[in-house]
Design a protein around this nucleic acid. Structure first.
Lengths: 225, 225
DNA sequence: GAGAATTTGAAACAGGCATTTAAGGTTGTC
DNA sequence: GACAACCTTAAATGCCTGTTTCAAATTCTC
């Protein structure tokens, strides 16, 4: 139905902006130009709407990373990956749903989408680990790959951490498509240089201790719905 | 008074963990082993307690970055800066207040601490810009410095984005002092290599357009208290 | 076009939570 | 030891917000 789709899109935007807890059902309904009862009619409640909004956001975003050709050189694949993560930065109208939705769930775990994690997020991460392993001429379980993963992801998420106005303040420049391209370019080059620096280092001092334990619990362990 | 201090410390931890909005006054009081009315008696309300908690957290954290000797080589200063940002990662008992408090305010601006921004945060950022400018053999207004700033800060904040358990899952290793040291080491080296990569690049293709406008509004522009 | 099912609208409901209130207890002072 | 200032406690208040309710309206079926 029309209303249902409008609600989903509004929900993506509001949940992405505020997070599950701080998002107001009334806000979502105002943006969707509908009544609050519609949420409970179509979805059964705020929590269920949240889960559906996740699915909706991912249904728009998912294919791209998975479609990076595996025979591209790893440098090119890294750029494509970064580009994909930063794609949602603009679209202030359409929404910047996926990247920030995910970020919000990381910060305030609701426990509502744990089952979507392995289905939707883990495969993406595995793509990046593969790229990094290729760049470092090692395998994806190498501790250095995990650290580089954190570095790349951290850089890509940084712009989503703040309001657009604050990002523009930091960069001293309005957030245009051109600016996003420049960000992609920077993060890719910066990371490639960082990775090559690691590859050049002697591996001896980072071999023993620390980074070697198998995963214990799982992600999204917390919950406060 | 005793109670006042216990409240401040509990507030730091709870606000840092949940953010202003999601934090419950009752939670804070339970941790401080006091009654909910104490918050309103000693501080006048949740909002005022939040501001005082910020001040308290910063009073513990502030000196270090400011005390990095300016005559150290920039590589050494960068390491000291990163180390300072990651210091709060442990201290699960004492609290990991500053870094995550700040992060929460970035993500959900409350508008309650805008006045503390210039006083507390801007100076820290200027220290980093100076370091990066020295490393790039340029001045702190160079657009490349701003991009590197985003990269370094993004990497340093990444560990604070998630619950400890999730970070340990990503790193496949428990979060020990040793692990934190390794993180500091990695981020410093990775960034130094990235920065040197940028410095080596031809400056021509990143000179015109984009990154050149003076700050328009200010940070923490939003508010939803 | 009549009747039935589905969807929407406005208002009432209920629970959670910050804040207030007023009484009781503690500490310091003369 | 009495008084006063300060602090703590438990219960009450009132607001905000997700959910429910039920009537009105729309859409679908025959």
């Amino acid at each position: 139905m029309q209303t249902r789709r409008r609600l989903l899109e509004a929900a993506c935007r509001v949940f992405a902006e505020k997070g599950f807890h701080a998002a107001r059902v009334a806000d979502i309904c105002r943006r969707a130009r509908t009544n609050v009862a519609a949420v409970n009619y179509h979805f059964g409640g705020k929590a269920a709407l949240y889960v559906e909004a996740w699915r909706h956001a991912f249904s728009l975003a998912k294919p791209s990373v998975a479609q990076i050709p595996e025979d591209w050189p790893p440098e090119k694949r890294l750029r494509a990956f970064v580009e994909d993560l930063l794609r949602n930065l603009l679209d202030t109208e359409a929404n910047r749903p996926f990247s920030r939705l995910y970020l919000m769930e990381l910060i305030h775990p609701t426990g509502l989408v744990t089952h979507l994690w392995r289905e939707l997020i883990e495969p993406r991460r595995r793509v990046l680990l593969r790229i990094l392993a290729d760049l470092l001429h090692t395998d994806p379980d190498d501790p250095r790959v995990l650290l580089c993963d954190l570095s790349v992801i951290g850089q890509c998420r940084a712009p989503y951490l703040m309001q657009t106005a604050d990002l523009e303040y930091l960069l001293r420049s309005p957030l245009s498509p051109h600016m996003v391209r420049r960000l992609v370019d920077h993060i890719t080059r910066f990371s490639l240089a960082g990775i090559r620096g690691m590859a050049a280092e002697t591996a001896q001092e980072r071999s023993p201790g620390g980074l070697s334990r198998p995963p214990s619990t799982g992600p999204f362990s917390g919950q406060d719905p």
